[in-house]
Design a protein around this nucleic acid. Sequence first.
RNA 1: GCCGGCGUAGCUCAGCUGGUAGAGCAGCUGAUUUGUAAUCAGCAAGUCGGGGGUUCGAAUCCCUUCGCCGGCUCCA
Length: 597
Amino acid sequence: MTWRRSQVRFLPHPKLEMSEKNYPIETLRHSAAHIMAAAVRKIYKNAAFGIGPSIATGFYYDFDLKETIKPEDLKTISKEMEKIINEAIPFKRYTMKKEDAIEFFSKRNQLYKVELIKEIPDAEVSIYELGDFVDLCKGPHIENSSHLKHFKLLDIAGAYWRGSEKNKMLTRIYGTAFATKQELADFLKMREEAKKRDHRIIGKHLFSIHPQAGTGLIHWHPDGAALLNTIETFWKKQHILNGYKLVRTPHIASEELYRISGHLQNYSEFMYSQMDIEGKPYRVRPMNCPGHIMIYASELHSYRELPLRLAELGTVYRFEKSGVLHGLLRVRGFTIDDAHIFLAEDQVIGEIINVFDFTLKILASFGFDKFKIYIATRPEKKYTGELKAWELAEKSLKEAVAKKGIAYEIDEGGGAFYGPKIDIKIKDAIGRLWQCSTIQFDFNLPERFKIFYIDKDGSKRTPYMIHRAIFGSLERFTGMLIEHYKANFPLWLAPQQIRVLPISEKHTNYAKSVFEKLKKSEIRVSRDFRNLSINKKIKEALNEHIPYLAITGDREIKEKTVTVRGRKQNIGVFSIEKLIEKLKLANTQYKETLDKD
RNA sequence: GCCGGCGUAGCUCAGCUGGUAGAGCAGCUGAUUUGUAAUCAGCAAGUCGGGGGUUCGAAUCCCUUCGCCGGCUCCA
């Protein structure tokens, strides 16, 4: 431990501007957590302290309190923090022998700290003092409390001690801190922005969830279903064009199938209980892979056919604890845009790269071009197969990603039970990351099902398998799209692409003919022939995020045209034929807007 | 599942320390015939999430249950 700042440095010159300090953001936030803890200690005398780290969006501290903290209490705590900040209390670092530290914290009833100290391998531990608040801490910290200028306490939550459900639940307070006022303001604004994009609110007319029908289960309304249909049609077309074969498999299967696959042994906590069909146990499927393997196994395959790519928009059902359900993003029944690729050993790396490129290409069509890549390795307990094979599999995933020259992080133990995976997290319009795409390497299921292909020399060989999904789940992907686009879908995706609005009832007949022509041309057109002012009808249509409005009045009838209004203003007057042509082009070429000319 | 919060008309919300419900929007009816973000008027609409309790009296207090929200854990 070489950090001795508090011992060799003294308080800065009072005139020295704080903005000249260039603390790493983690240091600033970690110190903010300490200052918050000191404030909590002043208000709640008996508080026991858990941990208080800096995190990607700020910091938190976990407390064991007798009292429950309410949202309005955050103000009181903030004020107490301000006091500490105004006093410019220095952070002082000390070291203590482990035994002394254990005694020290035991005396103060800080049993969580004692637990932490016992696990530190060194003979000495470091202690930071902030006035009369003393905490076990590696540091480093800011010089004194006044260097924290821009912070805000955000949320209160329950959090298990050390993240385990078996432990006591502590009270966690989240906050954030930044070096500048502007950064803090931007962050808070971004949080507000995220709230405004909540798909459960702005996507209300697209889907619903009914406690009466079962929580975590989605009912797609006409507009939502239209959106899904567009996505699915696009998906199918792209897959056919890229060497996949579309298949369909059953939603339930004999339990025997899941015993062979290993799902029963390794995945049962997510599977719904069995049902009895003529004395035989069946299960609702949690994954599509066994079904695809059945299709593979029903024919003899030559090495010449590999890689064999089977794809399906496969709906699965998984048990998720009620507390984790969240709109479209976490549900109990969802459709995976699944594919299973059967291939020979020497094709693995090439095919992973192939899948990777295909995935990025598809995602780009939805406006996503920033990602974060994770390689998830073998789970500690629930896995199947040999360790050696796992190592090899993990190595080939890393190799494939390395070949693409893409940076990745390791998600230790995050793999599927049958193999490691590459997870692609998508960055949306306001910088949030979403887990959607996944590419999984499987050397286990083919063996368990004893599937094979005939190799060049006439011998039987076990293929490898790649499981992959690009959207992940259509539900989650759609939920993310709603938030990404703020419900202002690009033209090709919009559930309603254009709405026909007559100026008054007099123009209904003409509007009707426009509507019919658009409809016959397979444009997703809607109409509002109600006897309302044109202003009102425009307002409603815009609130429904419809990208284009076809306005029809006397002028249009006379000239056999329509005036087209975009989301912001009029974009021009077109003949009906010209308008249809433009809309059709937008659909076939996946365009965001109508071409202007 | 766990911690905390919430649950009033289709939607958004009001209803102070208990005296048995109210607004805007949407809906319906009528008038108006409208040129780029709300025409006017009238009508109808709630066993105040469900169950139990305290009380002369409960949307309001207590218990319980279901659901939702913010997190934890988990995940496509």
